[in-house]
C-alpha cells in the first residue's frame, strides 16, 4: 500500500484511483461513524458517500499535520451533523406541546412516535444495541458526537479535539456531561444497576 501522503498528492492532481484507495482504507470506519450519527443504514450509506465526495472536493484544505483518517472523521462528522441540523431546522418550529396546525386550519394534538422500548424485551445484544442507538438518536448533536467518537469509535482526546475543532478542555468537559446524560437515561430505564 502506498503511503497515504502520496495517495493524497496523487488525488490532488485528479487521480481518482489514488483517491479510491484512500476511500477503501476508511470506508468501513466512516460508515460506522455515520451510522451512529444518523441512526439508520440508509442514511449512513448516503452520508458516507457524501463525506467522501466532499473530501474529494475539499482535499486541498487538508493539511498534512493530522492523519487523513482523522481529517476524514472531521469531514464525515460535519456532513452528518449538518444533515441532522438541516432536518431539525425543518422540524424545529414545532414545539413539543403546541398543537399542530394543519393546512386547512384545524389543529391536531401532536403525537410523537414512541421510540422507547420497554426494558423487559431487551434480551438480545442486537436489540440492546438498537435501544442504545435510539437513546443516542435523542441526544443533542454535540453530546452525541463526543460519545460516538470516544466510546464507540474509540478516538483519543487529541483526535477528538482535531475532529471537533475544539480544545482538549472542551472535549473533556463535553464528554463528561454527555456521558452523565446517557448514564442517567440508562439508569432511569434500569439498564444499569
Amino acid at each position: 500500500m502506498e503511503l497515504e501522503e502520496q495517495l493524497v498528492k496523487r488525488s490532488l492532481q485528479g487521480d481518482t484511483i489514488a483517491f479510491e484507495q484512500l476511500v477503501i482504507q476508511y470506508q468501513n470506519k466512516i460508515y460506522a461513524l455515520s451510522y451512529r450519527y444518523m441512526g439508520n443504514e440508509e442514511d449512513a450509506y448516503d452520508m458516507t458517500q457524501e463525506a467522501f465526495l466532499k473530501a474529494y472536493r475539499s482535499l486541498r484544505t487538508f493539511k498534512g499535520d493530522s492523519s487523513f483518517g482523522t481529517w476524514m472523521y472531521r469531514v464525515a462528522t460535519n456532513v452528518c451533523l449538518d444533515e441532522l441540523r438541516r432536518r431539525k431546522r425543518r422540524i424545529m418550529p414545532l414545539s413539543l406541546d403546541e398543537p399542530v396546525a394543519t393546512t386547512d386550519g384545524d389543529e391536531l394534538a401532536k403525537e410523537l412516535p414512541d421510540t422507547s422500548l420497554t426494558p423487559d424485551i431487551i434480551y438480545e445484544q442486537k436489540e440492546f444495541s438498537e435501544y442504545i442507538q435510539s437513546l443516542l438518536n435523542e441526544m443533542k448533536a454535540d453530546h452525541k458526537s463526543v460519545i460516538v467518537l470516544r466510546d464507540i469509535m474509540e478516538l483519543s482526546y487529541e483526535e477528538m479535539a482535531e475532529v471537533l475543532n475544539c480544545s482538549l478542555g472542551t472535549v473533556k468537559s463535553r464528554l463528561s456531561r454527555a456521558r452523565n446524560t446517557l448514564r442517567k437515561k440508562l439508569e432511569d430505564r434500569e439498564l444499569l444497576p
Binding site: 466532499k54 475539499s58 469531514v75 449538518d82 448533536a141 458526537s145
Partner: peptide, 12 residues
C-alpha cells in the same frame, strides 16, 4: 440553540 458543530473546512 442546540446547534451542532459547525466546522466547515471548505471556508478557509
Amino acid at each position: 440553540k442546540g446547534w451542532g458543530t459547525d466546522n466547515n473546512e471548505v471556508v478557509n
